[in-house]
Computed example of a mutant assay.
Amino acid sequence: MSQLRDIDDYLRMAVENGASDLHLSVDAPPAARINGAMIPLEDFVLTPEATRTLVFSTLSETQRSKLETEWELDYAIEISGLGRFRANVHYARNHIEAAFRHIPPEVPDLSQLGHSPTIERFCQERRGLILVTGVTGSGKTTTLAAMVKRIAETRSGVIITIEDPVEFLLPHRSCLIKQREIGKDTKSFTMALRQALRQDPDVIVVSELRDLETIRIALTAAETGHLVLATLHTIDAPQTIDRLVDVFPPDQQQQILAQLSNVLEGIICQRLLPKADGTGRVLASEVMCVNYGLRSCIRDRKIEQLVGLMEIGSKEGMHTIDDSLDLLLRQGTITREEALFQCRDKQRFLPPAPARTK
């Protein structure tokens, strides 16, 4: 059995192997997520004591106390020569375990991430709500940081971010950027969002719309002339609308639909898919630019019509997830199996039937 290394060594091994995440779990080897697959970093499993030692080496006394009280902890750490990591510590089967996500030292450009020029255009908006959605690990935070970077490069103003925790460190550039972290700089998303309206913001960034009150204040901020960027854990544009509205009691939903139809400017739904050649992952996305027809559909909750309007809105910069998958498949970037697994309309991606012989 090899000797247990320290946490810096495991984080370094993960980064050097191109991993997005490092996982520490009891009765399993330290493991790195590389191109979506879990790869063990040792030939032995971690004991409860070893896992606890590795995790606690990254925590302050205050953080340890909070973990023991709340049983969960989100935080960020910085390792010299490696960069920043977002960490989550939690209990599983009464043992401490953890996941660490590597945050690249430089915020990439939107084009480097694979986004279309439409997303650059979203960054030019002066008011309204723009949502970046996707499952955990789909790159929402990176897209949000790239949008903030673009805004800060192209205009003057004040950008306030509300994050849990702060991940990318964003330089001021032409904008003054105030990055506020839950638990360090403010007590909650709701409180920070309310206070942000009194801090002379031009742009407000919310790392996650988690609850009814946060959504309500974000809609109000967008209504009152601010540009609000936020993320949600949804996989496509129709589901995003439903999720935002369903958070509210039935007697308030019509009012929320009216607000949403007025302030929503765009939705970016994204997924990171394995490349066909196994060399990494590639972005697939759905982009909705809210026009008059879409506003009407949202107001009347005709969610089933959104996909059709996106399909005919390509000249306005829109595309569905199936359009994105189709392009990636034709380029040979992803496999047909992956396209079939991810698509909305499977008939579009079924292989052509073999020709009949006479």
Rank of each mutant, 00 (worst) to 15 (best):
73 L>H: 02
210 R>T: 07
332 G>K: 06
14 A>G: 14
138 S>H: 06
163 E>N: 11
18 G>A: 07
275 K>F: 04
112 Q>F: 11
314 S>M: 10
292 Y>K: 15
249 P>F: 06
136 T>V: 11
66 K>N: 09
84 R>G: 03
64 R>T: 07
238 P>K: 05
21 D>I: 02
110 L>R: 05
101 R>F: 01
278 G>L: 07
31 A>D: 04
122 F>C: 08
189 F>D: 01
334 I>W: 03
22 L>I: 02
351 P>N: 12
228 V>M: 01
192 A>C: 05
68 E>I: 07
240 T>A: 08
146 A>E: 04
261 S>G: 14
324 S>L: 08
154 T>Y: 07
91 Y>D: 10
27 D>P: 01
338 E>L: 14
108 P>S: 09
114 G>S: 03
340 L>T: 04
213 E>H: 02
173 R>M: 11
280 G>W: 04
192 A>W: 00
158 V>K: 06
26 V>N: 06
2 S>L: 15
145 A>W: 02
235 I>E: 11
120 E>A: 13
316 E>R: 09
181 E>P: 01
124 Q>I: 12
44 F>L: 08
187 K>N: 12
133 T>G: 01
121 R>Q: 15
192 A>S: 06
148 V>F: 03
48 P>L: 09
334 I>A: 07
280 G>C: 08
105 P>W: 12
109 D>A: 15
178 K>T: 08
183 G>M: 05
278 G>H: 06
151 I>V: 13
117 P>Y: 10
39 I>Q: 14
302 K>C: 12
319 H>Q: 13
71 W>C: 08
272 L>Y: 02
49 E>D: 14
1 M>V: 14
196 A>K: 00
21 D>C: 04
93 R>F: 10
186 T>Y: 02
339 A>F: 07
346 K>N: 13
348 R>E: 11
335 T>F: 00
119 I>V: 15
351 P>R: 08
32 A>S: 12
256 I>S: 03
45 V>Q: 15
96 I>N: 03
131 L>P: 00
41 L>P: 01
33 R>S: 07
339 A>M: 10
173 R>P: 02
358 K>D: 12
61 E>W: 04
191 M>Y: 07
235 I>M: 12
34 I>M: 05
4 L>A: 09
319 H>L: 09
47 T>G: 01
162 I>H: 00
50 A>P: 02
261 S>V: 07
269 C>N: 09
176 L>A: 06
177 I>T: 05
